[in-house]
């Protein structure tokens, strides 16, 4: 198993950008903005963000912004809230939020709130609690959460709570660790966690840990590195993280590394990708693995970045 192969992972992330001519990278092209967030946040957690040319990244990001204020996943694509949050997060990483017309971005997000408090992902109207989280997280980073109806947003999220204590995409949707992260994160940011039965939800979340030490996202599913993030953050936010075996989880994540070529996969021996590399490193950061920057479980950004936003000046 060994230790975290920091240098290999840095090399891997830097190489992904250069490998533009594979089928995989062509079909992932439309979500390059998310990829930038995953890769760059990982580099920052590893203390290597300075290996990237910030100006180049920022000018590309700004080319993805639309008249509406929203961002697209790459130049020439349609805007969506999923890419807007990644753009804002990356700008926050580089301490460059001042290049944004904050009012314009906030107007875009505010415009996506529906009458019942829920949020659409874009003008085409798909509703999901993920979009509620993104809207709340994004506006909070931009320090204009008061632009939306927070009470209604919170009530909508609560309407997606199930009898098992978990949350789904829409009212009546199945509980899923990813959706739980979004809902608990949004409730944490808006100071509404008192609406959650912490023991009940914590119970369900802890039952996600399987024998190998890894976490799954739903009953009967295989463990997967990315759930280290969704489940762990939720447990931390509701103060129940002492209920799982952290040591075993660290081992599971380290076992999913490609120690030769860098990168982390969903399970041991699968092919690596940037997504799971980010969640693996972020999970280890939550588990206080030595040498990594601390990450904030609600905002999904390094703690020093969050402190800079909220406590500077």
């Amino acid at each position: 198993m060994g230790e975290l192969a920091v240098d290999k992972h840095v090399q891997y992330i830097l190489s992904v950008e250069k490998r533009k001519d594979s089928f995989e990278s062509v079909v992932m092209d439309h979500l390059r903005m998310n990829g930038a967030y995953w890769g760059l946040t990982t580099l920052d957690l590893l203390g290597k963000l300075d290996t990237v040319d910030a100006d180049e990244v920022i000018s590309w990001i700004m080319k993805c912004q639309h008249e509406s204020g929203g961002f697209s996943g790459n130049i020439g694509h349609d805007p969506h809230i999923l890419y807007t949050v990644s753009a804002v997060q990356v700008l926050a990483l580089f301490n460059k939020l001042d290049v944004l017309d904050i009012d314009k971005v906030a107007t875009y997000i505010t415009g996506l709130q529906n009458e019942d408090g829920s949020f659409s992902g874009d003008i085409w109207g798909e509703v999901d609690t993920r979009f509620s989280y993104i809207a709340i997280c994004c506006l909070s980073i931009l320090r204009c959460l008061d632009r939306i109806n927070v009470e209604k947003a919170v009530n909508y999220i609560l309407s997606c709570k199930n009898l098992d204590g978990g949350f789904g995409c829409t009212p009546g949707g199945e509980s899923h660790a990813g959706q739980i992260f979004c809902c608990v994160g949004a409730l944490a940011i808006t100071g509404s966690l008192h609406h959650v039965d912490k023991d009940l939800l914590g119970w369900w979340l802890c039952e996600r840990q399987v024998k190998s030490g890894g976490l799954n996202g739903r009953p009967e599913k295989l463990p997967d590195v990315c759930y280290s993030w969704w489940v762990l953050t939720s447990l931390i936010m509701i103060d129940r993280v002492h209920w799982i075996d952290k040591e075993k989880l660290v081992k599971f994540i380290l076992n999913c590394q490609d120690v030769e070529n860098g990168g982390i996969s969903d399970r041991p021996d699968d092919a690596v990708d940037v997504f799971h590399t980010y969640f693996g490193v972020a999970g280890l950061s939550l588990l206080e693995y030595p040498g990594l920057k601390a990450i904030d479980p609600a905002y999904a950004l390094p703690v020093d970045v969050i402190n800079r936003i909220f406590f500077s000046r």
Partner: peptide, 15 residues
């Protein structure tokens, strides 16, 4: 299955 998980072997075949 390009959007599903691939094993390392499948990946090298793609290369």
């Amino acid at each position: 299955d390009f959007r599903g998980k691939q094993t390392k072997r499948q990946n090298s075949e793609l290369e």
